[in-house]
Amino acid sequence: MPLITVSYSTSRQSPSLKADIASAVSELTATILHKDPKVTAIVVTSVGADDWFAGGKSLAEQKLASYWIDIHVSEGTNTKDEKATYLAAMFTRMAEILGPLHPETYLHVDEVKGDAYGFGGLTQERRYIAGKLDVSLKAA
């Protein structure tokens, strides 16, 4: 049930660019981090290349693209190797979509405690406990 925000900048334009980005992010999040796409929310925002600066120059000047991805997941649900694989795979996929990327392109996996994070009015901790109770009741 991650909430993912994607800010990106590129000179490439297409009517489906935001949808392509959301689809790629959803797919990699599901396959590498094992997050259910049915409860994954993704916000995609475009930033003009003249408004994005890296290394003291705008991306427009450098003729490069970039992104900032911030994903919130429940603490302890992914390994270090999964997160490293996710970061590398996302960089490769986003370069395919956006074009050559500035090295100062970022992805942050923000692990939050289950009692401080949730959706639909329930914390992830309560969902976990409810799931354990359901299994216990079914086993009885």
Rank of each mutant, 00 (worst) to 15 (best):
L3W: 10
I4R: 08
T5R: 14
V6M: 04
S9I: 11
S9L: 12
T10I: 01
T10K: 06
S11L: 11
P15A: 14
S16L: 02
S16T: 06
D20K: 05
I21C: 01
A22M: 00
A24Q: 00
S26E: 08
E27P: 08
L28A: 03
L28I: 01
A30V: 00
A30F: 00
T31Y: 02
I32K: 04
L33N: 04
H34A: 06
D36W: 05
D36L: 04
P37F: 10
K38D: 15
A41L: 04
T45Y: 04
V47E: 06
G48L: 03
G48N: 14
G48T: 04
D50P: 07
A54I: 15
A54F: 04
G56L: 05
G56E: 07
S58G: 13
S58Q: 07
A60R: 13
A60P: 05
A60K: 06
A60D: 09
Y67H: 14
I69W: 03
D70M: 10
I71E: 01
E75C: 09
E75Q: 09
N78A: 13
N78K: 12
K80N: 14
E82P: 08
K83Q: 10
K83N: 03
T85K: 15
F91P: 11
F91R: 14
F91A: 15
R93T: 11
M94R: 03
E96S: 12
E96Y: 09
H102V: 13
P103G: 11
P103C: 05
T105M: 07
Y106H: 12
Y106A: 12
V109A: 06
D110S: 10
D110R: 09
V112E: 03
V112I: 14
K113H: 13
K113Q: 13
D115H: 07
Y117V: 11
G120I: 11
G121K: 10
T123C: 09
R126E: 15
R126V: 15
R127I: 05
Y128G: 02
I129Y: 06
I129A: 03
A130W: 12
A130D: 14
A130F: 12
G131W: 05
K132C: 06
D134K: 14
D134H: 12
V135H: 08
V135W: 08
S136W: 08
L137T: 13
A139L: 05
A140I: 12
